[in-house]
């Protein structure tokens, strides 16, 4: 049975992305996990620019900062600074479950070469950096992308 857990991110989470243009829109990230048979997975959602440089974090699924070091791509990008996800964390996501996040994102994030990354890890399972890497484009909205590890499919829509 697949259950849905919905997380409402009410705050404007584009704080790290404010240098960009003004218009914001509500975007929904839908992340469905494989049935990998372990405990809840930690998922880090973060954005890099066209040059691969870290721009900011959008969401951290997983409550305990001491385990963030098992998300290698995010660690590498942020140096493990928990301040990068302050106020935008939630529960970890169980196998087979779906995480829905509603975010207010800047228009300028789309079609400008920005990439969304998802790192994933679970206890007694491997750490998968870049489980999902997807270009943020208006053409790609609503199209599911398969991950390479924990993520069965990822879709962004607005």
């Amino acid at each position: 049975m697949k259950m849905k857990s919905t997380v409402m991110a009410l705050a404007t989470t584009a704080t790290a992305l404010t240098p960009l243009a003004a218009e914001a829109r509500q975007v929904t990230f839908t992340t469905q996990l494989n049935v990998y048979g372990g405990k809840g997975a930690y998922l880090a959602f973060y954005v890099t620019d066209a040059q691969g440089k870290y721009v900011g974090s959008l969401w951290m699924a997983g409550p305990h900062a001491k385990y963030y070091r098992h998300l290698p791509g995010w660690m590498r990008a942020t140096g493990g600074n928990p301040g990068e996800v302050a106020g935008i964390t939630g529960a970890s996501v169980g196998p087979g479950r779906t995480l829905k996040i509603n975010l207010n994102l800047n228009d300028a994030l789309f079609d400008k070469g920005y990439k969304l990354h998802i790192d994933a890890a679970a206890e007694n399972f491997p750490e998968i950096p870049n489980d999902v890497v997807v270009n943020l484009t208006s053409a790609g909205k609503g199209k599911p992308v398969a991950g390479r590890g924990y993520v069965k499919s990822f879709t962004y829509s607005y």
Binding site: N34, Y36, G37, F125, R148, G149, Y150
Partner: peptide, 21 residues
């Protein structure tokens, strides 16, 4: 993708093959 050694010295290799880990 990853090799882990647990405290007892057991070695496990992990990878995701298709949909199943």
């Amino acid at each position: 993708q990853q090799i882990k050694v647990d405290a007892a010295g057991n070695i496990t290799a992990y990878y995701f093959a298709g949909l199943s880990p």
